[in-house]
Every structure is written in C-alpha cells, then in structure tokens.
Design a protein around this nucleic acid. Structure first.
Lengths: 209, 209, 209, 209
DNA sequence: CATGAATGAGGCTTCATTCAT
DNA sequence: GATGAATGAAGCCTCATTCAT
C-alpha cells in the first residue's frame, strides 16, 4: 500500500483499524469476516481493499501499531526518571494503565501469538520490550540495587507478572489498574517471602505459643 | 455422543485427540481442517464424527483434559509436602515441567482464551488453579512465612511468572525447565530487590568508590 | 430380500417398519436417518440392513403396506352392503376412520407423492382406489340414483373431499372422525346448494321481507 | 438479508426463485442441491447466498410468494361479482386455472406440508384461504342459497375437491382446467345424488322394468 | 473512491451403506 | 444374527478477494 491519503482518507483508514481491532478482540479474528467489518461501518467492500491489501495485512498493522503505542507510553513514563528501580516501577505502572485502556489490543496480542503467521510479529515486539527494560535491570544490578540474577530472567518475570495481573485482575475482575500496578511492583520488588527478621520473630512466637 | 467404545474405539479416540491437539498447536485451530486431521491419520472423514460431535467439541475435550492433567501433576508434586512455602515451590516446579513436556497443550490454552466460545473453559480452569494454590499462600501468611499481602494477588502473580517464563524461556528459548523453575521460584520468593543490608553496603561502597 | 424369518425375526421386522413409519411421519423422510432409527430401537445398524436392502426399500414397503391396509378396511366396510350409495358412504366412513387411526401413514403418503422415486407407488395406489370405487358409482348412475356425470370425476371428487377433510378437520383440528365422515358424506351426496323449493321459499320471503 | 438490490440484483433474485422452484418441483426439495441450482444458472455458489440466507429460507420465500399469488388470482376473479354462489364458483375457476398454470408451485405446497419446518407456512396459508372463502359461504347460507351446514366444513370440502381434481385430473391426466373447474363446481353445488323426483321416476321405471 | 455483485475454493458436517469381528 | 467401526461422496454454507459500473 503506502498510498498517499487525503485527510478524509486518513480518517477512514483509522476508523477501519479501530473498528476492526475492537471486533477482532470481541469476536475473534477468524470469526470476524471482512463483510461484517464493512457492514458495521456502513461502507462497501471496496473501501476495505482500498486501504488494506488483505485482512491479514490489516491485522498486522493493528498489532504493530499497538506495540508501538505501548512502547511510547512506557518511554514517556520513564522520561524524567533516572533511578533504575523507579524506572522499572514506572514502566510497570504505565504498562498496566495502557493495557487497561486498550484491553482490546491486549487480547489481540495474545491471539496473534497462537498463529504461525502472526507469532513472529509478537515475538519481535516482546524481544523489543525485553531489550527496552533490560538496561534498567542491568543498571540496577550494577548499582547493587537489584539481586545478581540473570537480568533477562528478571525482565521476563516482570513482564509476565504485569501482563498476567493485567489480564486477570484488571480485565477480568475489573480491579483498579493503579492498585494492581502497585501490587505488581510490590511483588516484583520483594517477592512473597516475609523478611528474615520478621519471620524469625513469628517463628519464635509460634514456638512459644 | 457418550458412546460405548470398544478397546479399539478407545484407542482411536485418543489417537484423534492427540493428533488433533498437536496439529492445532502447530498450525492453529482455525487453520487446521478436520479433513487434514483425518488425512493425517489415514482414516475416513466419518471417523472424526463417530467420536466427536464437532470440531469445537473435540477442542473443548482437549482443553479440559489438559487442565485436568496439569492439575494432577501439581497435586502429585505437593503430595508429601506440608510446608506451605515448599508446596508452592513444588507446584511451580511441577507446572514448569508439565508445560515443558506438553508444550502443545500450553499453546492451545493460550489460544482458547482468545475466542469467546472457549474462553469460559480456560477461565474456569484458571479459577480452579487459583483456588488450588490459594490455601497454601494463605497458610504461609498465617504462619508468618509470607508477607501479609492479598493472597489472591500473590497467587495470580506466581501463576503469571511461571506461565510467562515457561513460554519465553523454556518453549521459545529452549532453556532447561528445572533451571527456569528454580529462577521463577527465586523471583517469586525474594523479588528483584537486593536485601537491605547488602544494598546499604553497596551504596556506601558506591559512595566511597 | 424375501428372507425366511424366524418368529423373532418377523417381530423385529415389523418393529422396524412401525418405528420408521412413525419417525418418518413426525420428522420427515429425509430428516430421519437410518442411524436414528436403529438408535431409537437400541439395535445395531446391521439389523436394519439385515431386514431391508435400503432406506428407500423400507419406505416403499411402508407405503405399500399402508395402501393395502386402507384398501382392506374399505373392503370390509362394504362387505355386507349392496346398495351402491350406501357402499360409497361406508367407504367414506371407513376411510375417515382409518386415516384418523393411522395418521402417520397418511402423512407419509402425502410426502411420497412429491418425490419422483415414490410417486409412482402412490399413483398406482390411487388408481387402484379409483378402480375400487368406480363400479359403485357407475352402478349408482345406472340405477338412476346418481347424477349422470363422468363417474371418474365423481370418484376423484369424493376421494378429494374425504382426504382433505381428514387432514384438516380430523388430523389438524382434532374433530371426531365419524362426525367428519358424516359431513363429508352429506357434502358429497347433496352438495352445498339449498334445494330448489327451499331456495324459492327463501327468496320470496326475502323479497317480501 | 433484506439487502438493497439494484435492478440487476432484483432480476437475479427472481431468476433464482423461479429456477429453484421449478427444480424443487421436478426433482424434490431434498434431492435438489444448491450446487445444482447455481450450476443450472451458470453462476457461482456465492450468488445463492448473496440473495438468500439459506436453502430453507429460499424455499419459504417461494411458498409465501405462491400463496400470495394464488390469493391475488382468487381476489381478482371475484372482484366484480356480488352473488355469493357465483363468487365461490369464480373462486374455484380461478384456483383451478392458477394451479394448472403454476403446477410446480402446487407440487411444492404439497411437499411443504410434510416437513415440520415448512408445514406451518402451509397451514397458515390454508387458514387464510378458508378465511377468505368463509364469508361467501356464510353469506350464501344467510341468503338461503346454501344449505344450513357448518360453513367451515363446506369451505374445506370445496377446497379439497378443487385441489384434488386439479392434481389428479389436470396435472396428472392433463385434462382441460376449465372443464375440470366446471365439474368441480357442479360437484360442489349439487353433490352426486340424483334429484329426488328424477330418482323416484327412475325407481318406478326400474320397478316396472 | 465507492458500491453491489460475483467468484469459487474450501470448511464443517451428515449419512446411506459396508465390513470385520 | 448382531455390533461397533469405518467409508467417502455429497451437502450446506462461509468468506477473502476481485470486478464492473
């Protein structure tokens, strides 16, 4: 494609992208037909194929755009921040908020991973996300702020926690994204284990009790 | 359905279940046709519908069976264990191993979540998983071994870490599941933050350095 | 076919015929599968093909049997009767009662007429019915009891009235077959027109009124 | 459905309707595949489903349209006529002619009655037909022109005679519809019985002979 | 740019019939 | 005689895509 678009054309194109994304997310990619998309927008089928070469291409556009937007949100969030730990925290907060506000795009990402044609797009995006976060983790380790563990593992774990809590607690259970972000941060920072001293106190109390 | 099956029939049914699961996982559910399944097994198309009412029904069987099997593996893993923390650790290890050994079923689960008719199955399974793990987390908190945080959040976070590391590090990168399990456990136990004392030492060293 | 059947075999065969006939009538011939018939009788598919060469053959048996039975009922009804008009009346009564008691067979006959493979069976049966009734009509004309009209037309008309009233009033509306038979007889005998004298009286009354 | 159709589209749609109706009538509804219909019209399979949601829906359209057309023909036929008896006669004539000219639609109606999903359409149409004719019969009775019998029964009988003679004498035997209509009228008006006086004369003659 | 119409491969499912045991 | 299993042609329908206007 890469057509030159008029102002109206640009608008049409984003209408298509947005409506398709929401419909794909709600009904599934395969379950949504091109016909239903153009019907939903009250336009002819020609419109669709004027702006996009194929249904697949449209979907890949949606995915790429979503990844770009999330990355931007994360970048903005850590812009003025220099402490590695707080950068990570801000990243988690921004991600949680973005996933909450663009839940339909989140769902699409999860689907895309399961189909051979789209998986590479997602994997590339995820590698990118890891590469974006890795330096902060590494810096945190170097600065002695973070444990001396494989930084790639740590990064992946943080992403995993964030995504899963976003899905289960925010999207499915409807909890407040900022609170869930805080919980995710707390979990990632300190884990689940009680601090040694407190634990010792509790144990002696338990023994004496 | 619910036919009476002979020994041969039972075998055929599992062949179908297994072959279909692997093919769905490799090529995607929608991309795999019933025709290709029966061709792959060198049987007539009717065989499929002798054992299953529909492609969807077969898929739901696969999902349910996978959830049951993972749950059994987890149950076995914590059988002889009474300490809540070690129960959680064993659960993570067992899950990681199972997901690594049944990666195709893991992939299917992730897809199923993205389609309205299958999502309920997955969500039910996940609720079940949370309910299974929750008591141990709660017991750990009561015993003063775990931080006094929302146990449901903790449980969800643990599941999120485990699943994500399984996918990225084990399935995609091919790392050893037991090592990844250990990393997941370590992350979940202690988080990423360096212990306060070490941190203090590092900071003073950094200051003096 | 034409197997020699044991007593048990004969029973099985009529069970099949009866169950199939009722199911065909209720659900339609094409809509009823051989599988559903054997399932309904809790037997294997082999049973079906042991007694009948094909689904079509079974159906044709049902049709032929139905026609034979109706014909017998009619024959019995006029057995002791020698007056042509009363023979016709008794024929109508017997038919109405039989159709009411074997409504499922009636429905099948109507369907069979609409499919090229079965239509000839029905038409043959109907020709037979006309041939059976024709002599009585002809005798009635000769005896000066019936109008001097084309006897074939009269016969067809009588059959038409009987069948239609059976379907609409007895089967659909659930009226009493004997009453409907009486109405059919009355209609066939005298038509709808008021007798001339009564009509004349009414008209003069209307004129004076 | 309920599409906006262009002139060309409207034409296509009627082509489909007409061709399908004739083919269904000739070969049977179940025996006629959608594939054979579109092949017969030299169009792609999609065309069928562009205009109709399903084979069943198309068929129901055909039935409804047929009923509407027959009703119109009847209405036209009695338009200038005020005498109840002549209205009935004209109705019979118009019906006979219409059935003869649209024999394929007649056949479809008869089939439709035998399948659960179509039967309601037919029954509704038939109720309509009875309701249309009933007033004239009732008026005839009130005016003293027709016998004082259950008008619904009379109406049903008239319809039964007309339909049956149309099928057997016109469609199957190829007789002239107007002559058959006349015979039907005569039958319905006067029945089969010879008038009393003629009968008496005949009997005395027979006695003396 | 846009529309309604058309294409036709391909998908899911049914089902009469046959067969090994 | 009888069963569960298997066959595979054929049916209905969907849908991404193309095209004439």
């Amino acid at each position: 494609m890469a057509r030159k678009l008029t102002a109206k054309g640009t608008k049409r194109r984003s209408e298509l992208l947005d409506y398709a994304a929401r419909t794909f997310a709600r009904d599934g990619y395969h379950t949504t037909s091109v016909a239903s998309i153009v019907e939903g927008l009250h336009v002819g089928k020609g419109v669709f194929y004027w702006y996009f070469a194929s249904k697949d291409e449209l979907f890949i556009h949606i995915l790429a755009e979503a990844q770009r937007a999330l990355r931007l949100a994360q970048r903005d969030a850590i812009a003025g921040e220099h402490d590695p730990v707080r950068r990570i925290e801000q990243g988690i907060r921004a991600s949680m908020r973005w996933l909450s506000e663009h839940r339909h795009l989140f769902v699409l990402t999860e689907f895309a991973r399961t189909e051979a044609r789209f998986a590479p797009v997602i994997r590339a995006g995820e590698r990118q996300a890891v590469e974006d976060a890795l330096p902060h983790v590494a810096a945190g380790i170097t600065a002695g702020l973070l444990r001396r563990e494989d930084p790639e593992v740590m990064t992946a774990a943080i992403i995993g926690v964030t995504a899963h809590l976003a899905r289960v607690l925010v999207l499915e259970q409807g909890r407040d994204p900022d609170r869930v972000a805080q919980a995710a941060i707390s979990f990632c920072r300190d884990g689940i284990l009680q601090e040694a001293e407190v634990r010792a106190a509790a144990e002696s109390a338990g023994a004496s009790g």
